[in-house]
Amino acid sequence: MTEFSEAERAYLKSQRLGRLATVSPQGQPQANPVGFFPQDDGTILVGGYEMGRSKKWRNLQQNPKVALVVDDIVSLRPWTVRGIDIRGEAELLIGPHELGPHFSEEVIRIHPRRIHSWGLDSPDGS
């Protein structure tokens, strides 16, 4: 498993929303906004209200390849962005977890295989 740098870990902990991309059995990409939770072991958990009934869950049952993009705009003038693109394999978990009572028991655990980040070298994104 690929490991996050200190700057990447700090950035992920500072953000709450990302976009999760999966692939349908027909090969069609799908991207959805998701809440995510970085874990101390280097994986990322993604939870939802009815995760087990979602298209992303069904897609991952057929193909575990996944991408998670987390980014934000630091400044409009000058245009400054930062973010991280995480590619990896999804593990589908069912059962109790610590994400919160409003989440369903189905959770996606992302095991990073490739990490690409930009603009994280300084707090202002430069």
Rank of each mutant, 00 (worst) to 15 (best):
Ala90Asn: 09
Ala21Thr: 09
Gly100Leu: 08
Ser122Met: 02
Pro101Ser: 14
Phe4Cys: 12
Arg53Ile: 10
Ser117Lys: 04
Asp40Asn: 12
Asp85Thr: 08
Phe36Ile: 12
Trp79Asp: 07
Asn63Pro: 05
Thr2Asp: 01
Ser14Trp: 12
Arg114Ser: 05
Leu20Ser: 00
Glu89Ile: 07
Glu6Ser: 15
Gly125Tyr: 07
Met51Tyr: 08
Glu105Gly: 01
Asp85Val: 12
Ala10Cys: 10
Leu20Met: 10
Pro25Glu: 06
Val69Gln: 05
Ile84Cys: 00
Pro112Arg: 05
Ile94Asp: 01
Leu68Val: 08
Arg19Val: 14
Phe37Asn: 02
Gly42Tyr: 03
Ile73Ala: 06
Val74Phe: 02
Ser14Ile: 10
Pro78Cys: 04
Gly35Val: 04
Val34Tyr: 02
Arg87Leu: 11
Ala90Val: 05
Arg113Gly: 00
Gly119Val: 00
Pro78Asp: 03
Gly48Ile: 04
Lys65Gln: 10
Phe36Thr: 10
Val69Glu: 06
Glu3Tyr: 13
Val70Arg: 00
Phe36His: 08
Asp121Lys: 11
Met1Trp: 12
Glu91Met: 12
Asp40Leu: 04
Gly83Thr: 06
Met1Phe: 14
Glu6Trp: 14
Gln26Ala: 14
Tyr11His: 11
Pro96Thr: 14
Pro101Met: 04
Glu98Ile: 10
Thr2Gly: 00
Val70Asn: 00
Arg82Met: 09
Glu89Leu: 02
Gly48Tyr: 02
Glu98Tyr: 03
Arg58Gln: 09
Ala10Pro: 09
Glu106Val: 12
Arg58Phe: 09
Pro123Ala: 11
Arg113Ala: 08
Ile86His: 07
Lys56Tyr: 01
Ala67Glu: 04
Gln39Thr: 11
Arg9Lys: 11
Asp85Ile: 10
Gly47Ile: 04
Leu12Pro: 05
Leu120Ala: 05
Thr2Lys: 12
Arg53Phe: 14
Leu45Asn: 10
Pro101Thr: 14
Ile94Pro: 00
Pro25Gly: 03
Val66Asp: 02
Phe103Arg: 13
Asp85Gln: 13
Leu99His: 12
Arg82Phe: 08
Gly88Leu: 09
Ser126Val: 04
Gly48Phe: 07
Thr22His: 00
Ile73Gly: 03
Asp41Val: 00
Val66Gln: 01
Glu98Phe: 08
Pro112Ala: 06
Met51Arg: 11
Gly27Leu: 05
Val46Lys: 02
Arg16Met: 07
Gly95Trp: 08
Glu8Trp: 03
Ala10Thr: 13
Glu106Asp: 05
Asn63Gly: 05
Leu93Glu: 09
Ala90Cys: 07
Glu50Lys: 12
Gly42Leu: 05
Thr22Tyr: 03
Ser24Ile: 08
Thr80Lys: 04
Asp40Phe: 08
Tyr11Ser: 03
Asp124Arg: 13
Val81Asp: 07
Gly119Tyr: 06
Glu106Gly: 04
Gly83Glu: 04
Glu98Asn: 08
Glu91Asp: 13
Pro123Asp: 11
Lys13Tyr: 14
Ala10Gln: 14
Glu106Pro: 09
Glu91Leu: 13
Ser126Asn: 11
Ile84Phe: 03
Gly27Arg: 06
Arg19Trp: 15
Gly88Glu: 07
Leu120Val: 10
Met1Asn: 13
Arg58Ile: 01
Gln30His: 02
